[in-house]
Design a protein around this nucleic acid. Structure first.
Length: 193
DNA sequence: AAAATGATGCTCT
DNA sequence: GAGCATCATTTTC
């Protein structure tokens, strides 16, 4: 799949985009990982979305065209990486929740302070820490082939088989029962619990 | 195995 | 001032 085809999928529908993101490769420098767990957050009718109440100084990258990074700080502790979806002006996005480490494992172990590879990227905060992501990555185009310096996504070779479940950590009545969390069925051992 | 807890800080009301 | 799209550690069954 080409980068342009991939961006078009993300542009069309955030839920389909969350499924399509499974199997994509996240790259930053010598670090690479295969995405195995995602969650869709839709702007207009999803109470759990940061954009449910409209545009704010924090969530502006979600309103960019599909394929841009929204990196925000949460719980006073963790950075989270999201990929914007839908067209410019729509605040939908996809949270990258977990990945399978492929290269740069030693650097990841060092940053995460663990030797257990299974725990390196098995959660959104863990992934951001292992990749050393912070607010400076906010608003970057993750699919721009000419800007490979910082961070980017490589589209999957083929669609992954997935299982859908309820999203994690949401209050009841706030869209907690939407089945918008997707896990790569063949690699669930790398997902969060 | 599951539940409780504390750390920690930014955003929006 | 409340509420988080969390994690690691400790405590309890």
């Amino acid at each position: 799949m080409t980068v342009d085809q991939f961006r078009e999928i993300l542009r069309r529908d955030v839920v389909e985009g969350a499924k399509a993101l499974l199997g994509a490769t996240l790259v930053r420098g010598g670090l690479t990982a295969r995405i195995v767990e995602t969650e869709a957050y839709r702007s207009d009718d999803d109470p759990a979305s940061h954009c449910f109440h409209g545009r704010t100084p924090r969530n502006w990258p979600m309103y960019l065209d599909a394929g841009f990074a929204y990196v925000y700080f949460n719980y006073g502790v963790h950075w989270m990486l999201n990929v914007s979806a839908h067209e410019e002006g729509d605040g939908s996005g996809i949270l990258i929740r977990a990945a399978q480490p492929l290269s740069g494992l030693e650097e990841m172990r060092e940053r995460r302070g663990t030797e257990l590879d299974r725990n390196l990227l098995s959660g959104p905060g863990k992934l951001a820490k292992a990749f050393s992501l912070d607010g400076s990555y906010n608003g970057l185009d993750l699919l721009c082939p000419s800007d490979l310096s910082q961070i980017h996504l490589v589209p999957p070779a083929e669609p992954a088989e997935y299982t859908a479940t309820e999203r994690i950590g949401l209050a009841i009545g706030k869209g907690h029962d939407y089945p918008w969390r997707f896990v790569d069925a063949a690699r669930s051992e790398w997902a969060s619990r």
